[in-house]
């Protein structure tokens, strides 16, 4: 293969890795919005807590990759449910903006709580043996392979849960109508908890994989990544799960390709301009549909 093609394939691989991580976080935003029409701004910090769980499990308990990943996902899932029960549920009848302010507050609490315990950036030990393969000049590392395949696996699993199971059906029903669905005997609180657990669990998985790929973590790491994932969810059409995945891979690709084409200084500027144009053309996102206001 020619040098040029190899270079572009390598950059495409980078984009796939970045997009996978954005996707796992974007799913949490979109699921919560779908079911509560609320933007959970603490979600980026749940992702950060995931990375710190990963640090604790791997460096103090010396666990290997698989138990670290599973325990982190369980840990963040519990955290997600706790946040919903303690901070958001009491405000469910309050104006939407109160819940959003609360979410910002929860995010700041998580950041500063972690900062108090760990003021120094932490280094994540090598959880996976670093093997690099070379295919015709394209470098693929074991970490890239794990991130991409595991993320795709989790996304397929989520899609299956939402589209094919009873719980998924209940989620879709609640997002469709919150007045009559409870009357049909669907336990709304339970389903909302499950939604938060799944969203936060995915953020935990993203935190673990992020910590593997970028092994220096700090309490503020969730802010920028959280914003970007939120933008992915909006671009894909917030509330739409497949849309969030699409949005994440689009942002990942744009970010990497801008750096590949232009000086890297232009990245955020070009990426966000492109996304704004996309939103102007399709105000409800790529896969979003205008919500019909019932009178």
């Amino acid at each position: 293969m020619s040098e040029g093609i190899i270079y572009w394939l390598q950059q495409a691989l980078n984009a796939l890795q970045l997009g996978s991580i954005y996707a796992l976080i974007a799913l949490g935003y979109t699921m919560v919005y779908g079911i509560l029409t609320m933007i959970n701004f603490a979600h980026g910090d749940v992702f950060m807590i995931g990375a710190f769980f990963c640090f604790l499990l791997s460096s103090t308990l010396n666990l290997t990759f698989v138990p670290t990943l599973l325990l982190t996902m369980i840990g963040t899932a519990i955290l997600g449910v706790l946040i919903e029960r303690l901070a958001y549920k009491p405000l469910r009848q309050a104006p939407r903006v109160s819940a959003i302010i609360t979410a910002l507050g929860v995010g700041m609490f998580l950041e500063n709580f972690t900062l108090a315990l760990a003021p120094y950036p932490k280094h994540i030990p090598m959880l996976l043996e670093n093997v690099t393969w070379n295919f015709y000049g394209i470098t693929l590392s074991s970490i890239q392979l794990v991130i991409i395949s595991l993320s795709l696996g989790l996304m397929l699993l989520l899609d299956y849960i939402v589209q094919r199971t009873t719980i998924g059906m209940a989620m879709r029903a609640i997002s469709w109508d919150k007045t009559f669905v409870p009357l049909m005997g669907i336990p709304v609180d339970f389903i909302i908890s499950i939604t938060f657990a799944i969203g936060a669990g995915l953020a935990g998985a993203a935190g673990t994989m992020y910590a593997l790929a970028y092994p220096v973590i700090d309490p503020y790491m969730g802010i920028m990544v959280g914003w970007k994932a939120f933008i992915c969810a909006v671009v894909g059409g917030i509330g739409n799960i497949r849309g969030a995945m699409a949005g994440a891979f689009i942002l990942g690709t744009v970010e990497i390709m801008v750096v590949a084409f232009f000086p890297s200084t232009f990245r955020d500027f070009v990426a966000f301009t492109l996304l704004m144009v996309l939103i102007m053309v399709r105000p409800y996102g790529i896969l979003g549909k205008p919500r019909i206001q019932k009178v």
Binding site: E3, Y7, I256, P263
Partner: peptide, 21 residues
């Protein structure tokens, strides 16, 4: 190669691919 990043960035894969090239 004269590449930049912005404080807070974590992913340097695009810049590093350029540098490697």
């Amino acid at each position: 190669a004269f590449e930049t990043y912005t404080a807070g960035d974590r992913d340097f894969s695009a810049q590093l691919t350029k540098i490697k090239n």
